[in-house]
Design a protein around this nucleic acid. Structure first.
Lengths: 221, 221
DNA sequence: TAGATTGTTAATCGATTAACAATC
DNA sequence: TAGATTGTTAATCGATTAACAATC
């Protein structure tokens, strides 16, 4: 017997990475007052294969209808539900510098199911303050608060040199997953999940594509 | 005859995405006063296959030495050079809100070969100001300045609703590549490269891994 | 020389694409 | 019914891993 429950479905990583892209795309189409959309159109605009699109969507949705395509509103809801965007997961942020403050100020995270509860820092001047309604606590309150609030996700936005120390602290506090914005590798025990927000990697890809395309132009002379 | 010049080497996308990770990792090892490192150690710490590591590194470096491994300093330089981190590429940023300001304030981009020259915005209150030495101009100066400075990369950090308009403007100004931080799909002509900085995608992956691991724990009872 | 480690060639695995059947 | 579009099964492609040869 085939297991069908969302949570037990194994979704390929590439599909998982494309799903938020479909969502962003559907957002723009919804504004255009489209009610339905075909995999061929999505494929063309997003520059992926149309079979790919249908396969990806099949993981998360009951599917479209032959001749009409996918109902945009329904499909949007399906993807959001699959990605867990409709129930909030709490997170704690460490490092209320520039980037940290920006993330605290960003109200869009709730759209993605993330709820940043509070921040921690060592800078006396900002401890006790709050940003966008989110309090900044002293770093030594982290372990205790993490436990009492039972938060599973920690966000690291401290400068590079402090990343490992902060990471260790989060681990000691019992965190399950870490979203790391510092551009260094952090060591964690096996049971802790790390997701690196690697803007450098993203940039590298852009620069690479750019130089490829410039080379191509040059070759065509 | 096999082409060997760096720029003509076709590097698989997965490799390209891992390279910045190796760099971050080597940074931490350099601090530990290691001079050489073996692919096996890298593989273990980064949780990738050791053959994978050697294959990846072979694309960018003259390689390690049997019995001793890779010279860390040399390898670091090779990866940086390959990724273009050692010659700066100019960029213009549009949208000096929270995120835009944070990127303007971040001095680390130069480590990745990116040089943000200036920002553009429509908010009269900040036009004329500068952040971290980078001037903020009125948006209607963009087309002209882009041309005069011959900048190839544009960064979009405006809110979602304005992203497409700003994108069109960048394209009209003759930009070659766009780094898009707005969480919407933007349409561009074929010759323009878009790289979406999709934090939501990253987050989705983290949340997914987390729920997988929680499920696993639960199943083990 | 023996052993550790790199680099390469071959085998496997998984993701993408192509061909086609099913359905509205 | 015919045609458009979805969904599925099979073929292809590319990336990862395994086995082994080369080298210091």
């Amino acid at each position: 017997m085939k297991e069908k429950a969302n949570t037990f479905q194994l979704v390929p990583k590439p599909t998982l990475l494309r799903l938020p892209g479909y969502l962003n795309y559907l957002k723009t189409r919804e504004k255009d007052d489209c009610l339905t959309i075909s995999s061929a159109v999505i494929a063309k605009d997003l520059e992926v294969n149309h079979v790919q699109v249908r396969k990806d969507l099949a993981f998360v949705s009951k599917g479209g209808r032959p001749k009409t395509g996918y109902a945009i509103i329904e499909l949007t809801a399906d993807i959001k539900s699959f990605l867990g965007y409709d129930n909030l997961t709490d997170a704690l942020l460490v490092g209320a510098g520039n980037l940290g403050k920006t993330l605290l100020s960003y109200n869009g995270f709730s759209d993605y199911g993330l709820n940043v509860l509070a921040a921690f820092d060592t800078d006396e001047r900002i401890i006790g303050a709050n940003i966008n309604g989110k309090p900044i606590y002293a770093l030594d309150k982290l372990v205790d608060l993490r436990r009492r609030l039972n938060v599973n996700i920690g966000i690291i936005t401290v400068p590079e040199p402090e990343a490992q120390k902060v990471c260790d602290l989060l681990v000691a506090s019992g965190i399950s997953a870490i979203w790391n914005f510092a551009p260094v590798h952090v060591y964690v025990p096996h049971h802790v999940i790390v997701q690196n927000e690697n803007m450098a990697a993203s940039l590298a890809l852009l620069a690479n594509k750019l130089s490829d395309s410039i080379r191509l132009q040059d070759n065509q002379k």
